[in-house]
Design a protein around this nucleic acid. Sequence first.
DNA 1: GTCTATAATTTGATAGAC
DNA 2: GTCTATCAAATTATAGAC
Lengths: 179, 179
Amino acid sequence: MSDTVEKLMDAAESGIRLRGYHAVSFRDLAEELGIKSSSVHYYFRQKEDLGIALVERYAERFFAALDAKASKAKTPEDRIRAFARTYRDALTGSDRICLCGMLGAESCGLPSTLSDAAAEFLQANVDWVAKTLSGTMKPKARKRRAAHIVATLQGAMILASSLKDYSIYDSAVQDLLAA
Amino acid sequence: MSDTVEKLMDAAESGIRLRGYHAVSFRDLAEELGIKSSSVHYYFRQKEDLGIALVERYAERFFAALDAKASKAKTPEDRIRAFARTYRDALTGSDRICLCGMLGAESCGLPSTLSDAAAEFLQANVDWVAKTLSGTMKPKARKRRAAHIVATLQGAMILASSLKDYSIYDSAVQDLLAA
DNA sequence: GTCTATAATTTGATAGAC
DNA sequence: GTCTATCAAATTATAGAC
């Protein structure tokens, strides 16, 4: 992957996670790299293509970081904690909410290929949690718990970002995992 | 309030809750009412003003609906259930996520007066829950629980909307309130 | 292979018509 | 009081230069 592509994707991911898909323009991205907005189209034919590439890279990195953390964990509870920590690192490491949480919120205003990609990431998150809980609960309860956990983490990132108080993420997670 | 203003606000609220602030244009709103986009500026000088009016109206309606439901509840637990039901009605009654959840996610890309208004609504939600739980828990645990509850509801709406499966909202809430 | 001039459309906003 | 013609800036995208 060329250096320009990576810088472009970094700037785009950062912008979308901060301000949303429609608040990020090719011109802004180009300016950050010192090129013209039309040059961006050489690397990504349409904005939609850029968005999809971002979700793919984000998902890869997320699950890689998650596996690295979760593989060290001994119990299902610890693996869920690793999951919450992976989300938290994404938030506090960059002061930005989840890329797919943002795209999920905006989904009705996105090209369907992009909203589908974001939904796929979120579903994979729910599935990962449900799988991790297997053995500890019955299937239906597990499904509910998984939806609950992913919803809380996504919502807590938004809450923390909006209220400009990242401790609120930890508060929510602490209560979530106390039970 | 004139009829046009109300129709304008309805269209704008619907659009923002579906697609986000930056995906709603004055032209789209005007077209829906059969007027010109420049006419919209007669009712709202700037887009920012429209956004703030929307948050104010939304907050008024939300807390009115909440009070109506919660005043009938006998226990703190029932009042929290009424809170979750008020959120749920907003979601399933219109297939749209929370206005301030959306604006909270986009907050870094919004005029600060608007992001502040959205944050105020979210903080008021957390405060309402914390107040409702008073007597049942210690202050610190109450604060964590309140952050957890609001985060879960906001996140669950986004998850349900993105995955196009509203039952996921109920799943998350059922697990949240089971403890 | 990398980048740009330029187009076509859309946007928020102003100044002013009725 | 209500609405519109019109503008300046911004946005995605194409066709083509180097």
